[in-house]
Simulated assay, not measured.
Amino acid sequence: MPELVFADPAERDDLGAFVARAVRLDGQTVVRLRGRDGGLIDSWVATPFDVLATRTVRGQVQPADVTVSGNELLAALAVVRGDRVDPGAARDLQWRSALPPVAHWHMVDDLPARVVSDLADRGLALARESAGPHGTPPAALLDQTVLTVSGDGMEIKVPLRCLFAMSGMGFLGTNDAGEQVRVTATDAWLRIDARFGAVVRRRHALLPLLV
């Protein structure tokens, strides 16, 4: 049976806030929990924008890599106030997204969080104007490049869907003038880290398999 262990209640509450935002975006979401050396848990969700969101908290998870229901995990974190939490039954088969590598990330640039937040707000306003019959922004808009950053010999194009995911997960909206958002990348992946979490997306589409 899966189990989470937290030495600090604040870490449990941080994970709860992350899961609550993911459930608001998608009521059927699942959360992948992966233990790391040093007593860390990486939590992952797939957002409706085809972008992964992640947050790291201090604690332990058994087994070391397990996927659980977002709703069940959220309920457990809200109800159980002790240091051990049953996150619900494993739902590993429901996780369908590849995860990025742990190593080989290159620092590209630091951006003012206010600039990124303003770009996300303008994109959301444009999306409302051009949303389809089901309220979904067109893919062409989501894939539009809103930022191009360069550093360490890399030029990284950031699509609007990444900023939508950051806004939807509550990672943006700070009033701190000095707060920064960090952009890192590998040959295949883009990652944007803000104070309350990060979003991750493949830089290039996977080529289809030839039959």
Score class of each variant (00 low, 15 high):
P2D: 08
F6K: 13
F6T: 01
F6I: 06
D8H: 14
P9N: 05
A10Y: 13
D13F: 12
D14G: 15
L15V: 08
G16A: 11
G16F: 09
F18M: 01
R21P: 02
A22D: 08
V23M: 04
V23E: 05
G27E: 12
Q28W: 10
T29Y: 04
V30R: 08
I41T: 05
I41R: 02
W44S: 01
V45R: 01
V51E: 01
L52Y: 07
T54L: 06
T54G: 12
T56N: 02
V57D: 04
Q62G: 10
Q62H: 12
V66D: 02
T67L: 08
V68K: 04
S69R: 03
N71I: 13
E72T: 14
L73Q: 02
L73R: 00
A76K: 01
R81D: 15
G82Y: 06
G82T: 15
G82A: 12
G82M: 09
D86R: 09
D86Q: 13
A89S: 11
A89N: 10
D92K: 06
L93Q: 14
R96T: 15
R96L: 13
R96Q: 11
A98D: 15
A98N: 14
L99V: 04
L99M: 07
P101L: 10
V102C: 07
A103W: 09
H104N: 14
H104W: 05
W105G: 03
W105R: 00
V108Q: 00
D109E: 15
V115H: 13
L124V: 08
L124N: 07
A125M: 13
L126E: 03
A127Y: 01
A131V: 00
G132H: 03
P133F: 10
H134I: 06
G135Q: 03
T136Q: 11
P137F: 00
A139L: 13
L142H: 00
Q144W: 02
Q144C: 02
V146T: 11
L147Q: 00
T148D: 08
G153S: 09
M154H: 14
E155D: 11
I156K: 02
P159K: 00
L160N: 01
L163Y: 10
M166S: 09
M166K: 05
S167V: 03
G168Q: 01
M169R: 07
G170Y: 00
G170W: 02
G170M: 06
L172A: 07
L172H: 07
G173T: 11
D176G: 10
D176M: 11
G178K: 08
G178R: 12
E179Y: 09
E179G: 02
Q180M: 14
Q180Y: 03
V181Y: 01
R182G: 02
V183T: 09
T186D: 06
D187R: 14
D187M: 11
A188K: 13
W189Q: 01
I192N: 01
I192K: 04
A194Y: 09
F196Y: 14
F196N: 15
G197K: 03
G197M: 06
V200W: 03
R201F: 00
H204C: 04
A205E: 15
P208R: 07
P208C: 02
L210H: 12
L210R: 15
